[in-house]
Design a protein around this nucleic acid. Sequence first.
DNA 1: GAATCTGGTTGCGTCATGCAACCGTATGAT
DNA 2: ATCATACGGTTGCATGACGCAACCAGATTC
Lengths: 170, 170
Amino acid sequence: MSRKRFDEMNCSIARSLEQVGDWWTLLIVREAFFGTTAFSEFQEALGIAKNILTQRLDHLVANGIFERRQVRPGVERHEYFLTDKGRDLMPVLVALVQWGDRWLFGEGNEPLRVIDAEQRVQIAPLKVCDAAGREVAPSQLRFRPGPGATERTLRVFEERRSKRRAASIQ
Amino acid sequence: MSRKRFDEMNCSIARSLEQVGDWWTLLIVREAFFGTTAFSEFQEALGIAKNILTQRLDHLVANGIFERRQVRPGVERHEYFLTDKGRDLMPVLVALVQWGDRWLFGEGNEPLRVIDAEQRVQIAPLKVCDAAGREVAPSQLRFRPGPGATERTLRVFEERRSKRRAASIQ
DNA sequence: GAATCTGGTTGCGTCATGCAACCGTATGAT
DNA sequence: ATCATACGGTTGCATGACGCAACCAGATTC
């Protein structure tokens, strides 16, 4: 039986994970942010098997996260570049880096630093702000069904809500 | 051969993915943010096989992302709650939601909305700011080796840097 | 006291992953 | 001109992860 697909799940997280959620993909994207473009560089830097790397890069190209360019016409040699869609994964990587720094490495042991290329200064923890620009504490955040929610999502939310209500009455 | 482990990789992204990087984990965390606590609720809402859910929850509890509590002493029934470490994954989920909304669903079709529980208003795209609080465009962000970087990381960075220098001279 | 719910465990089949070997083309050294 | 090497893969094989269904024991409900 194949891996369960998240395609039909009506959820941005599930659908995003369908494209970038397997073991290697985000590391390949990270490597591309380091400036890596060649197959062999990805392979050596990550220690990934070549067949798997081939699969992943094909998948990423098919999903428009990487663009594959021939180095010279007539020569079968390629370079892989992030597209706008791929570069837009940066906040996901930053969020993961910051979580890992905080909970797995601890202050002062960060293996990676995220900086502003112009000012050359380190960046601060990601901020979640409301539409008016006011910062919102992560504990204040809630998920709610959006305009594209399905009946199923709405039902699950309603169930959870009534459950919590019942629990708070007791 | 088992899956390759990212444990020894000296990178926050790799180590984070080691804890939350498999197919189901972030969806289980998402579900917990919805208010789900019971095994059967996770199972039904996600459509995940029970044995896999057992494994994932055990793994998440072992890594301190979930806490497992007995509903009543003497009764073998449990509830699963996010710990602080688990709740701190919210920015990662928000980043994924926003990426998926933007590139996979498009405006107006978002299946999920992230709101501020107090103000009940929707939140804006994640902002990356420098230490002084100025916003930094994602395209301006760069990764650099940090204080905990290994020799290997430094070497890879140096190689990439000299390669780019050579390319820009041509 | 029978049925159902809950939270799993077990067994089985299939797919994904990792490894090593191979291969055709292009480039560089002798 | 020839030999070696790098590049970008492909192929074959072994093993582990995943999905599914069946089963199960204790608690709760009818």
